[in-house]
């Protein structure tokens, strides 16, 4: 993990000090640290010369900008109507069983966080989920178990 002050410096350099840069910078921090801590938000506020409240107000608006510590891999299972009809509950149950966590929780080793999300535009291949932005669709229990297994085995680093 890069030095965090350095991380924000790099992001500000990449996207600029304009107000429009706020979202890309926050997303850049999420990419590295998975969530936005109070300290990080204050650092960003200082770097962009806006108030901490502005940064927090913006960050808290968006569901993909987490404000709580998250695991290395964030699983977001779609819960909107079509995925719900096509077996979302089975997908959720399988993940809960595999990882021993409930929705909103993170595994004790900090590897996975399980969340639900609204429509991800995969209704023609429902049920579907995102893991760190990658799409997995046409899910069933077996497929979910294999995906989780693959993440545990191959994506440790």
């Amino acid at each position: 993990m890069p030095d965090t002050t350095k991380l924000i410096e790099n992001l500000v350099e990449k996207y600029g000090k304009k107000r429009e840069s706020l979202l890309p910078i926050l997303k850049g921090i999420i990419e590295e640290e998975r969530y936005l801590s109070e300290d990080r938000m204050l650092e960003v506020a200082k770097a962009l010369d806006i108030s901490g409240a502005e940064v927090y107000g913006t960050a808290s608006f968006y569901s993909f900008l987490d404000l709580k510590p998250r695991g290395k891999h964030i699983i977001r299972v779609c819960k909107t109507i079509v995925c719900d009809m096509k077996g979302k509950n089975e997908v959720l149950k399988t993940i809960k069983d595999c990882l021993g966590i409930n929705v909103g929780e993170t595994t004790s080793d900090g590897t996975f966080t399980l969340l639900q999300t609204n429509c991800i535009g995969q209704c023609d291949h429902a049920p579907a989920m995102l893991i760190d932005g990658e799409v997995y669709n046409e899910l069933n229990a077996e497929k979910v178990r294999n995906i989780i297994k693959e993440y545990k085995l191959n994506r440790q680093n």
């Binding site: 979202l23 890309p24 926050l26 997303k27 608006f61 968006y62 569901s63 993909f64 900008l65 999300t117 609204n118 429509c119």
Partner: peptide
């Protein structure tokens, strides 16, 4: 490209 961050 400007990326969103999850908001309908």
């Amino acid at each position: 490209i400007k990326s969103g961050a999850g908001a309908y």
